[in-house]
Design a protein around this nucleic acid. Structure first.
Lengths: 114, 114
DNA sequence: GGCATATTTCGATAACCGTCGAAATAAGTG
DNA sequence: CACTTATTTCGACGGTTATCGAAATATGCC
């Protein structure tokens, strides 16, 4: 019901967000909204060398959490909200957060959690 | 409104789940429900050396995603559902997944995303 | 205490990651 | 084409991680 590929895919996204620098970058992307933001502006905002930023952006793009489109000399970066939705969906569905929240009683060996 | 510590905390949890082996371990813990599962059984399920498993469990516990309680010779492991809830809450709130999903139109420079 | 089972700690190894500056590429402008 | 700006690629470095087997520790039982 859930392919191995999916798990590896989601793991790669979690890993990408697990680095504090990358999480900061991703948060900046999200805050930029659908309009996105150029790499250069992102660099100003976060304050890390361009090569480091590029490295992290490549990882965010590789796992699908972000995307880039060229606009002349500027490269505009955007968060892929739908992918984050997928990730949250995975965490909630696979890890039955809701079920756990709903049943604070000890009787949670239900099939929902198995 | 959001401390740096929180971000680092959540990043450490994301990082913990970002490793495929650890994600598998965590999923097994979740499936075990509130009753949890002994380390030994976990080892059978996942099929990795005990020392490796112990290493990963330590990380899951260190970031708060799991806990252990001793029951005689057996060490029982449990997923901390509330911590996962926090994590999902962080992803949804900080990264405005809902807002993005709700407004598929281009006009999403709203304060919700900023 | 001696023994069995469960789990961790230790020590080693190989692979990977984050960071940086310098050099290379991409795109536009005169 | 020369020049500028924007961004990436390259090469290096130090640090961290994942993995394993062997040895050590913890707990209970006889």
């Amino acid at each position: 019901m859930l392919g191995l590929m999916d798990i590896l895919t989601q793991a790669s996204r979690l890993e990408a967000l697990g680095n504090p620098t990358r999480l900061a970058i991703y948060r900046a992307l999200v805050r930029a909204g659908h309009a996105g933001t150029p790499v250069g502006k992102l660099q100003e905002t976060i304050g890390i060398p361009a090569s480091t930023l590029s490295h992290h952006l490549a990882k965010l793009c590789a796992c699908g959490l972000a995307g880039q489109t060229r606009e002349g000399t500027v490269l505009r970066c955007r968060a892929h909200y739908d992918v984050m939705d997928q990730l949250v969906g995975f965490l909630v569905a696979e890890c039955c957060v809701d079920a756990a929240a709903a049943c604070t009683s000890e009787e949670c060996d239900s099939p929902v959690c198995g």
